[in-house]
Design a protein around this nucleic acid. Structure first.
Lengths: 225, 225
DNA sequence: CCGGCTATGTTGACGCCGTCAACATACGGT
DNA sequence: ACCGTATGTTGACGGCGTCAACATAGCCGG
C-alpha cells in the first residue's frame, strides 16, 4: 500500500530530507519547545522552522498543531515512564541492605519501590516542568485511554502495588482504587510544587512535604501493622 | 490622585460605558469564555467584542492578555471558595444527627466537614471544568502567593483541619503538612477525573473512587483510633 | 464658569500564528 | 521508462496580541 519505504534507518543523518523521518524530527523539535516553554510553546511553525522545512509540510504528518502536541505529550509520557522504571529498578536491586534500619519485613522492597517511583514522579515534574505540564494538561477531550498501555507510567505504579497486594500488605478497604488514589496524591503534590504555593519553597522543606504525603499514602493504603 | 471617580455604583446598568466598570465587564466576559472553553478560550479581543468595546481598550485596565486571564483565575478561585464554604456550612449545621450510625465521637462534625469540602472541590472541578482548569493552570510563574489570603479555598481547608487538630484527632506525624497533603490528593483526583483516564468513568464509580481516596486521606492523617 | 489635563477609548498597523488551496518534485512499482 | 503518489513549497486568509497615534470626555484649578 505504501509506495515509499518507512524510515530509511541506514543513514542516521538527515539525508537532505524528502524521505526522512520528518514526523519524528518535527515531534522532537516539539519536545524541545515543550521542554523550554511548556505546551503553549509547541508552535507548529517554529518546529518546522527548526527542522528546516516549510510550515505546511508538517500537515503531511500531523492533522493539526493539536496532533503535534499530542505526539509530544506521548513522548513526554515515555520519558516519565523510563524515569520511574529506572528509579524502581534502583530501589529494588539492593540485596545488601546497607545500613537501613528495618529491611527484614516482607514487602519492604516493594514499599521502597513505591516510594522510589513516587519520588521519581516528583523529580520529573520539577526537573522537566515543561514536559510535565505538556502531558499533564489534557487537551480538550482526551477521551479513551487504556491506562497500562497508553500511559506506561501508570503500569509501573500498578505493578508495584500488585507486589504489595501479593504480599498481603494492601488494606482491602482501599485496595481497589489504590493506584488511582496514590497517583492522584503524588500528581496533585507535583502540581502544587510546580505552580501552586509550593513553588517558592526550599528543596529541603519540599522533601519533608513529600515524606509527609508519602507517609499519608502509605498509612492510608497499607494494612495496619 | 485619581481624576475620575471609581465605579459609579449608582446605576447598575452599563451607562453607555466610558466611566463604567469596564475592567469588571471585561473580566466577567473572560470568566464566561473560560467557563466554556478553559483558559485558552480567554481571548482578549473576544472579551472586548462581547463588551462592545475596542480591542485595545482592554489595555487601559489590563497590562496584557495574561493579566486578564489572571483576573479570571482570581474570580474562579473566589467561586471555588464560596462553593466549598457553602458545603462546609451545610455539613456542619447538622445538630440533630438524623440517622447516622456513629456521630457521638468528638470531632465527627469536623470530619464530616472535611469530607464535604473535599467533595465540593471535586464537584466544582466536574461542573465547572473550564473555570477549574483556568485557576489550575499556573501561568508561567505564579511566584509569591500567601495561601490563606490569595487562595481563600485553602483557608477553608486549613480551618477544618485546625478543628480536627484542636480535637486531638490529627496524627502528629503527618499534621504539619496535612493541609498540603490533603489538598494534593483531592486536587490530583480532580485532575485525573477531568482529563485523566477517569474522565470516561460513570458517576457512581467515580463516587466510589472519591470515597476510597477520602478513606486513604483520613486514615493517613487522623490519629489511629 | 471655563480651559486644560488626564483617564479612557478608537483607529490602523505590524508580526505571529494555524490552516487551506494550488503548485512542484522525487521516488518506486509496473 | 513512465506515471502515480507521497511529500514538500508558495502564497494567501483570517484571527490573535500588541504598539503608536489620535480622539474625547469629564473633573479640577483658576
Amino acid at each position: 500500500m505504501s509506495v515509499h519505504p518507512a524510515p530509511p534507518a541506514d543513514a542516521v543523518v538527515a539525508r537532505a530530507y524528502h524521505h526522512g523521518h520528518l514526523a519524528e524530527a518535527l515531534r522532537d523539535a516539539g519536545v524541545e519547545l515543550a521542554r523550554v516553554g511548556g505546551p503553549d510553546a509547541v508552535v507548529l511553525r517554529e518546529a518546522a522552522r527548526q527542522v528546516g522545512v516549510s510550515a505546511t509540510a508538517a500537515y503531511r504528518h500531523f492533522d493539526s498543531q493539536t496532533a503535534l502536541v499530542e505526539a509530544v505529550k506521548q513522548r513526554a509520557l515515555e520519558y516519565l515512564a523510563e524515569h520511574m522504571q529506572a528509579a524502581a529498578r534502583a530501589a529494588g536491586a539492593r540485596p545488601d541492605g546497607a545500613g537501613s534500619s528495618a529491611d527484614a519485613l516482607p514487602g519492604a522492597a516493594a514499599v521502597a519501590r513505591l516510594e522510589a517511583i513516587g519520588r521519581a514522579y516528583l523529580e520529573f515534574a520539577l526537573t522537566e516542568p515543561g514536559l510535565f505540564r505538556t502531558f499533564c494538561i489534557g487537551l480538550p477531550l482526551m477521551g479513551d485511554v487504556d491506562l497500562d498501555s497508553d500511559v506506561p507510567a501508570f503500569g509501573v505504579l500498578t505493578g508495584v502495588l500488585e507486589e504489595l497486594a501479593a504480599d498481603g500488605l494492601l488494606d482491602p478497604a482501599t485496595a481497589q482504587w489504590a493506584p488511582i488514589s496514590a497517583w492522584a496524591s503524588v500528581h496533585g503534590l507535583a502540581i502544587l510544587c510546580l505552580d501552586g504555593p509550593l513553588s517558592v519553597m526550599p528543596p529541603d522543606e519540599l522533601e519533608a512535604i513529600f515524606q509527609g504525603t508519602l507517609r499519608m499514602v502509605l498509612s492510608g493504603l497499607l494494612v495496619r501493622p
